[in-house]
Computed example of a mutant assay.
Amino acid sequence: MAGVGSLQEEALKRKERLKALRRKHQGEIEETGDSEPPEKKIAGEAEEGNKEIRQPIFKNYKPENESLQDAVAERAQPEKVEEHIKDQLEAAKPEPVVEEVDLMNLAPRKPDWDLKRDVSKKLEKLERRTQRAIAELIRERLASGKEDLVTVVNVSAAANQQSLDSDED
């Protein structure tokens, strides 16, 4: 039964501590000059700041007293939702993505399409240089004066045509 005695001693110590806290708290209240506890003081301030009485608003209740008839809220009218629903239904309709099928987009590309794309700019530069070189060769032949202009142009055109035919194959 030694445990019961120690529990009683702890209870007495706890009571003494609580009494000391109450005395300390009462001393603070007496020093400030207030006789009311802080909780009552706060509630009193709220009442003083709110001196006018709030009128109730009756939304679902019809009061029998005539003086309260002014506080009845007007009945809310439901909105017409037909227009909103029509807009939403129209927005939900799927639009046809493609009306005509483009066969070029569906056909697979040739395996070397990327090489042609990358090399095409360089080929354009080379084509221009080739045309300049051909023009210089024609001028040199004309300057030498061995052949007349018509035969030189025909020979160079034939050579150019043969080179184009060999590139296509």
Score class of each variant (00 low, 15 high):
residue 1 M to G: 10
residue 4 V to S: 09
residue 4 V to W: 06
residue 4 V to Q: 08
residue 6 S to Y: 05
residue 6 S to M: 11
residue 7 L to N: 07
residue 7 L to C: 07
residue 8 Q to W: 04
residue 8 Q to L: 14
residue 15 K to E: 04
residue 19 K to G: 03
residue 20 A to T: 11
residue 23 R to I: 12
residue 23 R to T: 15
residue 24 K to W: 15
residue 28 E to G: 03
residue 28 E to N: 11
residue 28 E to A: 10
residue 30 E to Q: 15
residue 31 E to W: 03
residue 35 S to R: 15
residue 35 S to Q: 13
residue 36 E to Y: 11
residue 37 P to G: 13
residue 42 I to N: 04
residue 44 G to M: 11
residue 46 A to I: 15
residue 48 E to N: 09
residue 50 N to I: 05
residue 50 N to W: 05
residue 52 E to V: 05
residue 54 R to F: 02
residue 55 Q to C: 02
residue 57 I to W: 03
residue 57 I to L: 06
residue 58 F to Q: 01
residue 59 K to R: 14
residue 59 K to S: 09
residue 63 P to N: 00
residue 65 N to R: 10
residue 65 N to G: 02
residue 66 E to H: 13
residue 69 Q to F: 01
residue 72 V to M: 02
residue 74 E to T: 02
residue 74 E to V: 02
residue 76 A to N: 03
residue 77 Q to A: 07
residue 78 P to D: 10
residue 79 E to Y: 02
residue 81 V to E: 10
residue 83 E to W: 05
residue 88 Q to M: 12
residue 89 L to K: 05
residue 92 A to L: 14
residue 93 K to M: 14
residue 96 P to G: 06
residue 96 P to A: 14
residue 100 E to N: 07
residue 101 V to I: 14
residue 105 N to P: 01
residue 107 A to F: 11
residue 109 R to H: 14
residue 110 K to Q: 14
residue 110 K to L: 13
residue 110 K to M: 13
residue 112 D to C: 09
residue 115 L to F: 08
residue 115 L to R: 10
residue 116 K to A: 07
residue 118 D to L: 08
residue 120 S to N: 06
residue 123 L to K: 07
residue 123 L to W: 06
residue 124 E to A: 05
residue 126 L to N: 05
residue 127 E to H: 11
residue 128 R to C: 11
residue 129 R to K: 12
residue 129 R to S: 13
residue 135 A to P: 01
residue 135 A to S: 12
residue 136 E to G: 02
residue 138 I to L: 05
residue 139 R to P: 00
residue 141 R to F: 03
residue 143 A to Y: 03
residue 143 A to V: 01
residue 145 G to A: 04
residue 147 E to H: 11
residue 147 E to D: 13
residue 149 L to M: 08
residue 150 V to L: 11
residue 153 V to D: 00
residue 154 N to F: 01
residue 154 N to C: 00
residue 155 V to K: 09
residue 156 S to E: 04
residue 156 S to N: 01
residue 157 A to L: 14
residue 158 A to L: 12
residue 158 A to R: 13
